[in-house]
């Protein structure tokens, strides 16, 4: 049953795809964990563990790294099978700038599109014009300027990029601290200094002034890329994330169901070390991580997008 069968010709007709509806959807995910899944079975495990949403994709980032090649949008049949398996929201990734992959994902009925640096970029100059879509978009950012440029293009949610598929939280920490630190710096600037700040951030003045006045982004800010343990998730929440994406960290670990449930609990009680300690016990092997120094520059995904 969809709203399309409701009479929209009546006075005060329903409006879909407004900023309030798109950003509000992300508000409903706050305090939650969004998990990468590659099969309906994994999606069920994620839902049973308390995930607020799943990201449907063909390969988790760790496998994209290991196998190489061009990484693209997932097969619509595979996304359909995950949509059919769970009642929580289903997200899916399109390549940076690949507006037709985005059109396809909207047509399939995914709840959120991640225009993601984890896939191979399709356009080296332009991101997708996200205002053109009814479905909302989340985009990655390594710093405040990048986040604001994505908002200008119509993103309704931001995630810090981190370095996906590494199981190493260091880049997530760097990007989260960069975004939050730059917002704090902005909020201390005078009106005339904000003009220069807007120029330096390469973002519209009105948006920069709005963020400075509110001392926060006008959308939800999640974190992603390298989270592998309950303590990683709790740290990101304490650093100011509204929630976390966990990619390879769950289904590349020894006991995915237990680890998924533990990360959900640690995210809710991120400020209670007793809870984080309790849920960290007996989880088996975490995913094997990668040291960032061992990655060649072209193997770093966070540099994709601008």
């Amino acid at each position: 049953m969809s709203v399309s069968d409701s009479p929209e010709g009546t006075s005060g007709a329903a409006q879909k795809g407004t900023s309030r509806v798109k950003r509000g959807m992300a508000d409903m995910l706050k305090g939650g964990v969004i998990m990468d899944v590659v099969t309906p079975d994994q999606a069920k495990i994620a839902e049973d563990a308390g995930a607020v949403a799943v990201m449907a994709l063909e390969r988790v980032p760790a496998d994209i790294r290991a196998q190489g090649g061009v990484a693209r949008m997932s097969d619509p049949d595979m996304i359909d099978s995950i949509i059919a398996a769970v009642s929580i929201p289903v997200m899916a990734k399109c390549r940076i700038g690949h507006f037709v992959e985005a059109q396809v994902l909207q047509a399939i009925g995914v709840d959120y599109i991640d225009e993601s640096e984890v896939l191979t970029p399709a356009d080296e100059a332009h991101h997708v014009d996200k205002w053109e879509f009814t479905v909302p978009f989340v985009c990655g950012a390594t710093n405040l300027g990048e986040a604001l440029r994505r908002l200008t293009e119509g993103a309704a949610m931001i995630r810090s990029k981190g370095e996906a598929g590494t199981g190493n939280v260091v880049e997530a920490t760097r990007h989260m601290r960069a975004i939050r630190g730059e917002i704090r710096r902005l909020s201390g600037l005078s009106a005339d200094e904000l003009f220069t700040a807007a120029k330096e951030l390469q973002a519209p003045y009105e948006l920069v002034a709005e963020v400075a006045a509110a001392a926060k982004l006008p959308v939800v800010l999640f974190t992603a890329g390298g989270i592998a343990t309950p303590a990683d998730a709790a740290m990101m929440m304490q650093l100011g994330a509204d929630g976390v994406f966990v990619g390879s960290g769950i289904f590349k670990s020894g006991d995915p169901a237990a680890r998924a449930a533990a990360i959900v609990k640690a995210t809710t009680f991120h400020d209670d070390p007793d809870v984080v300690a309790k849920v960290s016990r007996g989880l088996g092997e975490p995913m094997v991580g990668i040291n960032l120094d061992d990655l060649a520059p072209q193997q770093r995904y966070a540099g994709r997008g601008w």
């Binding site: 969809s2 709203v3 005060g12 329903a14 409006q15 959807m25 929201p89």
Partner: peptide, 30 residues
């Protein structure tokens, strides 16, 4: 999720009994 998926989410004016002062702008998300 009776109204459908996120692409079906919407906002519209409603009359709410017990609330005076005209229609209420209601935001429906999944």
């Amino acid at each position: 999720n009776a109204f459908g998926r996120q692409v079906d989410s919407f906002e519209r004016d409603l009359d709410v009994r017990g609330i005076a002062g005209g229609p209420y702008r209601a935001v429906f998300i999944r």
